[in-house]
Write a protein that binds this DNA or RNA. Structure first.
Length: 523
DNA sequence: CGACGGGACGC
DNA sequence: CGACGGGACGC
C-alpha cells in the first residue's frame, strides 16, 4: 500500500528483492574496494555506499551493500557478521538494512522477518506435505497450515519457518512460483492488533474485518453507509446499552463465544453487521461453505445477550440463524458434524422452527434493526432465493423423489454429495461457469455443484462473474451441465460449459513430482 | 558502536 | 458475448 513503488520518489531497487541490502558497521576509513574484495564472493553487488557526515565529510563507520539477490545478501551476512576485514581489528556488524521508509528503528522481531515465509498451498496439503516441499531448501524449524476453525479445512495458505535466513532465501527464490512466497510479517501480539483496531489503520496492509466483502449477495445489494459505517466493537451502535445487559445477564453463562449456523446465502459481511448490533462483538467469522460461524464478545454477558436476541432470527424468509453459546469442551453440542467432508450436507430444512413467538418483545427490537440493516443494504430475498418460483411449484421433494427443491435455485436438484480431495491427480473434467448479470456466492455454488458427485472445487475468479468447477469424474461434470446450464442460482442466470484447456501452465500440480505433464494437467 | 547518496534519459 | 484464483497467524 505504501511501498516504495507507489511513492514514485524513492528508487525502487533498495529492497527489491526483499532483504537484499545489508547495513554494516565497520572500522572508520574502510574503503569501497575493501568491501568489494571481501563481499563480492557472495554474489553480484549492485551498490556499495559508505556513509559520510554531510557537513564534515567524516567517515562514520557505516556502509550499505546492495546485492542482486536475497540469498547472496543472506550468505554474506551469515559469513561476514562478526568477522574483521583484512588489516582491521574491528569485527563487522552485518544485518539486513531497514527500508528507507522504516528509518533506523531497530525491530526486535528482525530475525523473524528473515526466516519465515508465507505461501499459497493446495487445499490438499497437510503439514507434512508442506514441510517436505520446503525441506529441500534447508532445515525447516516448523510449518503452519491455516485451517478453518470450524471445519478444519485447509484455507489454502501456510507458513514455513526455517532455522537460517539463507535457507529461507533459497526457498523464496527457488520454490515453485505457484507458492507465491513472501517473507511473512511477524505475527502481531493481541495488544498490537487491538491498537490497530482502535486506529483503523494497519501498516501491514491487512484488511480489517469490517472492510471485507460485503458483496456476498453479488450484485443484489447497495453498499449501506447508514447502518454500519463508524461502528467499532464495543460501541453502542443502536443496540441496548451495557447496563441493560449487565442487569439481565449477570449470571447466565461462562463463555464469550458463540457458534452460529447461518442460512445459505448469508455472507460474512452481513453476519458481522447483524452481530455487531450487540455491543461487545470482537470477531465474527463465517465459513461460507459450511455456514458455521464463530463469534466472540467482550464478556459472557454480551455473548448471552447476543444469543438471545439473534437466535432464531429469520431472514431471508424460510431460514433462520441458529445461535448457541460455545462451550469449548462441548463440540458435540454443535449444530452439525463440522468435520464431515461434505461441501454442504444440508439444504433448506436443516433448521428447527425457531419462530419469533418464543421471544419477548425486546428481542423483536434487535431483530427489526437486523432486518432493517439487510433491507437498507438492498438485499432482496425474493430475488436472491427465488422464493416465488420455489413456492409456486412447492418446496420439498418432487417427481422421482430423488431430487429436491432448494431455496436458491429455480429447478430441483439431486441431494448434496461429498466433495473429493484435490490430490493434484484426480481432475477429470473442468467446467466453465458464467453467472449473469453478476456472480453467485461460493457457498451457493458449492452447494449446487457438489450435488452431481465427485466435485473437487468450484470458484469464481475474484471480482468476476465467471469461474470454474473441477470434477474428478467426467460423468458427474456432464450431469452438472445437463441440470444447471441455463438455470438460475441465487437469482443469477448461469451458463455451464466444458472448459477449454487452461491458457498457461500454472498453479500447483500436486505431489506427483517429475513425471512430466500428463493429459489430466492440460484439462 | 546503529541508518540513507548519486545517478539515471529506459514506458 | 465470458476464459484461468487464492493472501496473514486470533480462542
Amino acid at each position: 500500500m505504501c511501498s516504495d513503488k507507489m511513492s514514485g520518489r524513492e528508487s525502487r531497487g533498495l529492497d527489491d528483492p526483499p532483504n537484499s541490502r545489508l547495513f554494516i558497521l565497520c572500522q572508520k576509513g574502510t574503503t569501497e574496494q575493501e568491501f568489494r574484495d571481501s563481499f563480492d564472493q557472495y554474489g553480484t553487488i549492485e551498490d556499495i555506499w559508505i556513509i559520510k557526515d554531510k557537513r564534515t565529510n567524516e567517515d562514520r563507520g557505516i556502509a550499505y551493500i546492495k546485492f542482486s539477490k536475497t540469498s547472496e545478501a543472506m550468505q554474506a551476512m551469515e559469513e561476514m557478521n562478526g568477522k574483521a576485514l583484512p588489516g582491521s581489528t574491528k569485527g563487522l556488524k552485518v544485518v539486513v538494512a531497514n527500508s528507507k521508509r522504516d528509518g533506523s528503528t531497530r525491530d526486535p522481531r528482525e530475525d523473524e522477518r528473515l526466516v519465515r515465509l508465507f505461501v499459497i498451498i493446495p487445499k490438499s496439503f497437510n503439514e507434512q506435505n508442506l514441510q517436505d516441499e520446503f525441506s529441500k531448501f534447508g532445515d525447516v524449524e516448523n510449518v503452519t497450515v491455516l485451517k478453518d476453525r470450524s471445519s478444519g479445512e485447509n484455507k489454502g495458505f501456510g507458513y514455513v519457518r526455517f532455522f537460517r535466513p539463507i535457507h529461507a532465501a533459497l526457498a523464496y527464490e527457488n520454490c515453485d512460483s505457484s507458492y507465491r512466497p513472501k517473507f511473512a510479517e511477524p505475527q502481531r501480539s493481541r495488544d498490537e492488533r487491538d491498537e490497530i483496531e482502535n486506529h483503523g489503520y494497519t501498516g501491514a496492509g491487512q484488511k480489517r474485518m469490517y472492510e471485507e466483502d460485503f458483496g456476498g449477495f453479488h450484485g443484489n445489494y447497495n453498499m449501506d453507509s447508514t447502518g454500519f459505517q463508524g461502528f467499532r466493537p464495543g460501541s453502542n451502535s443502536g443496540g441496548p446499552g451495557p447496563r441493560e445487559m449487565l442487569a439481565d445477564y449477570s449470571t447466565t453463562s461462562s463463555t464469550s463465544r458463540l457458534v452460529i449456523q447461518a442460512p445459505i446465502g448469508l455472507t460474512q459481511g452481513y453476519l458481522v453487521k447483524l452481530f455487531s448490533l450487540i455491543p461487545g462483538m470482537e470477531y465474527c467469522d463465517l465459513n461460507e461453505t459450511t455456514g458455521i460461524a464463530y463469534a466472540r464478545y467482550s464478556s459472557p454477558q454480551c455473548a448471552a445477550y447476543a444469543r438471545d436476541k439473534l437466535h432464531g432470527f429469520e431472514y431471508p424468509l424460510g431460514s433462520a440463524l441458529h445461535v448457541q453459546l460455545a462451550e469449548d469442551s462441548a463440540r458435540q453440542e454443535y449444530p452439525m458434524n463440522v468435520d464431515s467432508g461434505y461441501a454442504s450436507g444440508y439444504g433448506n430444512s436443516q433448521f428447527g422452527n425457531y419462530g419469533q413467538s418464543s421471544f419477548g418483545l425486546d428481542s423483536m427490537d434487535v431483530r427489526q434493526k437486523a432486518a432493517m440493516i439487510l433491507e437498507k443494504a438492498g438485499i432482496n430475498p425474493q430475488n436472491l432465493l427465488n422464493l416465488s418460483s420455489a413456492s409456486s411449484s412447492g418446496l420439498g421433494s418432487v417427481g422421482d423423489g430423488r431430487k429436491e427443491r432448494v431455496l436458491y435455485c429455480n429447478v430441483s436438484l439431486p441431494p448434496p454429495q461429498p466433495t473429493v480431495q484435490d490430490d493434484g491427480k484426480n481432475l477429470a473434467q473442468r467446467l466453465f461457469i458464467v453467472c449473469q448479470p453478476s456472480g453467485v456466492s461460493e457457498r451457493v455454488l458449492k452447494d449446487a455443484f457438489c450435488r452431481f458427485g465427485n466435485l473437487i472445487d468450484v470458484y469464481l475468479l475474484s471480482g468476476r462473474n465467471y469461474g470454474y468447477a473441477k470434477y474428478a469424474s467426467k460423468e458427474s461434470a456432464m450431469k452438472a451441465i445437463d441440470t444447471l446450464h441455463g438455470q438460475s442460482l441465487g437469482g443469477q442466470k448461469i451458463k455451464v460449459l466444458e472448459a477449454e484447456p487452461p491458457k498457461a501452465h500454472q498453479g500447483h500440480q500436486g505431489l506427483q513430482g517429475d513425471e512430466g505433464p500428463s493429459k489430466k494437467q492440460r484439462l
